[in-house]
Design a protein around this nucleic acid. Structure first.
Length: 540
RNA sequence: GGUCCCAUCGUCUAGUCGGGCCUAGGACACCGGGUUUUCAACCCGGCAACAGGGGUUCGAAUCCCCUUGGGACUACCA
């Protein structure tokens, strides 16, 4: 059976790169009728944050990437948090030690840095100078008493290595290129290399799809597998997704965008930003100078304060911007992968059906936000009324929208009235006017100037008001007929009638179709808003 | 610097393994036009690429070499 896994380290939100990795592993498992495991690689006690693992799981769930085994649901190969598997790693590390395939080291960071410098000077890769005879347990005790760090290194066999990779074919790495690497850190935790090899073996992982950044780790992993008598899983190293600004698409993108914006705008007084999102003056100064990066919620708060839209990187960012999970799945699945027949817009079932590991691309791909937008437009159209509604409700809750007050029926009307919207955010913004008090409409300056103050717009608005007031039965069709008739009588285009009315009821020139808009807020509110508008702008 | 990986329209890519069907296909973006009560959507049309140089071959986007360019790694991070 095919077993794949996604193994994030809980250091932050799930970002596009990680989600894409998860997706391909998930897709392969689904396609082959196999199993998809979630494992949390929390062996770095310094970098882990307590909420990150949960956030990552929430994000995976939002995307619909459910796991068959892992945190929250368990499974026969648990525990699924590496921090809870210490005894397992210890056992294998001991085995390596016993068999002379690993040895203790006691260098301080400074001594290690010196070795590194020397290697750099000699223009060679850093290879740890393996001692002729390995330190004994007595040496370990002695080092400990001297306060030296104790680590365990794996003794790389001195043979050339051939990596067989589904994407890249055979990759040759010369002996001596990969030095003896650490398998157990001085805090007793295994390194990534050790933990990943053991867990993949024990959990029965058959296929490992991961980023290209791991390609050069593979010789070490294979050597470890051989030393421990493990199977070799099938590897597929995917190309990297790069951003418009060049380089790997990373979580640093957002802070970077914010910093650059602050620096580029002289009108922004940095001192006034202190306190926003809880940032201190020192943190802010350090951030603007590019020395440190504040936490994401602080970044978000400041960006919001100065009205800057940050590029979406984390999966939640896309959620908050009104993208559908269906869009993200479809789009990420096409980053460095393609169908054989030019299909692009696909439903999930179709995507699973045609998934093929062999079609992973070798070259890097750029994350094209414009194309993502167009995919979202398409999926909003395709996803179906019920799913769209569910997505919309999730979204409204996530952003804490005033539209949360609407019932399902109303929400559905919003959605159908906005067919063709690019994001759920577009729909939300366009429908907010419904939940504003009749006397609290904010008039957009440009809209007033361009529409209300032009020609006889106010006259027409007054005429609409009196005709509306005289309507006996109020229906969307009736409203439409009334407005069309009026336009015809006045011998003007419908725009001359619809636009003043639109500005009157929602304060700007952008809203759902006008007949629908009037019908949604109701005739009573419409009349009140027209009165208010007439009153406010007539004397001018 | 060292090691490894990659290279087709502005972007994502098909075609590369198994040379001819490629006067290089699709999608997004862009430009022009149409539809239209705003925004969006929608319809029609257009622009646009085999990084450069050598080979191999009757024939190369496809195979080989070099150059150039891009990327990853180079941690007691994963």
């Amino acid at each position: 059976m095919v077993v794949t896994r996604f193994a994030p380290s809980p250091t932050g939100y799930l970002h596009v790169g990680g989600a894409r990795t998860a997706l391909f592993n998930w897709l392969l498992a689904k396609k082959m009728g196999g199993k998809f495991i979630l494992r949390i690689e929390d062996t770095d006690t310094k970098r882990n944050t307590p909420t990150a693992a949960q956030q990552v799981m929430d994000d995976l769930q939002w995307l619909g990437l459910n796991w068959d085994e892992g945190p929250g649901i368990g499974g026969e190969n648990g525990p699924y948090l590496q921090s809870e598997r210490r005894d397992i790693y210890d056992k294998y590390i001991q085995q390596l030690l016993d068999e002379g395939k690993a040895y203790y080291c006691f260098e301080t960071p400074e001594e290690l840095a010196a070795i590194r410098d020397e290697a750099a000077k000699a223009k060679k890769a850093l290879v740890y100078p393996r001692p002729a005879t390995y330190p004994t347990l007595d040496d370990v005790e002695k080092a400990k008493s001297e306060g030296r760090p104790v680590v365990v290194r794996f003794a790389m066999p001195g043979t050339d290595v051939v990596i067989t990779d589904v994407v890249r074919g055979e990759v040759n790495v010369a002996a001596g290129e990969i030095g003896d690497f650490i398998v157990q850190k001085s805090d007793g935790f295994p390194t990534y290399h050790m933990a990943v090899v053991i867990d993949d073996e024990l959990m029965g992982v058959t296929h490992i799809i991961r980023g290209q950044e791991h390609l050069m780790n593979t010789p070490g992993h294979q050597a470890l597998q051989d030393a421990l008598g493990f199977r070799r899983p099938t590897y597929a190293h995917m190309s990297v997704t790069v951003s418009e600004s060049g380089g790997k698409l990373s979580k640093r993108e957002r802070p970077k965008a914010l910093k650059n914006f602050i620096k580029s705008r002289s009108e922004i007084n940095v001192d006034e930003l202190v306190g926003i999102g809880g940032i201190t003056a020192e943190q802010l100064e350090s951030f603007v100078k590019g020395k440190t990066i504040p936490d994401m919620p602080i970044i978000d708060a400041i960006a919001k304060h100065i009205g800057l839209k940050l590029p979406e990187i984390n999966i939640v960012d896309f959620f908050k911007s009104g993208y559908l999970p269906e869009t993200m799945i479809n789009f990420m699945g096409l980053l460095g992968w393609s169908t054989s027949d030019d299909r692009e817009i696909m439903q999930l079932a179709e995507q699973i059906e045609c998934f093929d590991l062999k079609r992973l691309a070798k070259s890097n791909s750029l994350f094209d936000r414009k194309k993502l937008l167009s995919f979202n437009t398409e999926h909003i159209r395709l996803v179906g009324e019920e799913k769209l509604l569910a997505n919309f409700k999730n979204y409204l809750q996530e952003i804490n929208s005033p539209l949360n007050a609407a019932d399902d029926e109303l929400l559905k009307r919003f959605l159908t009235a906005n067919a063709g919207a690019r994001t759920l955010a577009d729909v939300e913004v366009k429908c907010r006017f419904v939940f504003v008090e009749n006397d609290a409409i904010q008039y957009d300056e440009k809209a007033v100037k361009k529409v209300l103050m032009k020609g006889n717009a106010l006259e027409i608005l007054a005429e609409i008001r009196s005709r509306f007031a005289a309507m006996e039965e109020i229906t969307a069709e009736g409203i439409e007929k009334l407005l069309r008739d009026l336009a015809e009588e006045k011998e003007v285009g419908l725009g001359k009638v619809a636009q003043p009315l639109r500005v009157a009821i929602c304060g700007n020139t952008i809203s759902p179709p006008i007949f629908e808009s009037v019908d949604i807020i109701g005739m009573e509110s419409t009349l009140k808003r027209i009165d208010k508008t007439l009153e406010k702008f007539s004397e001018a």
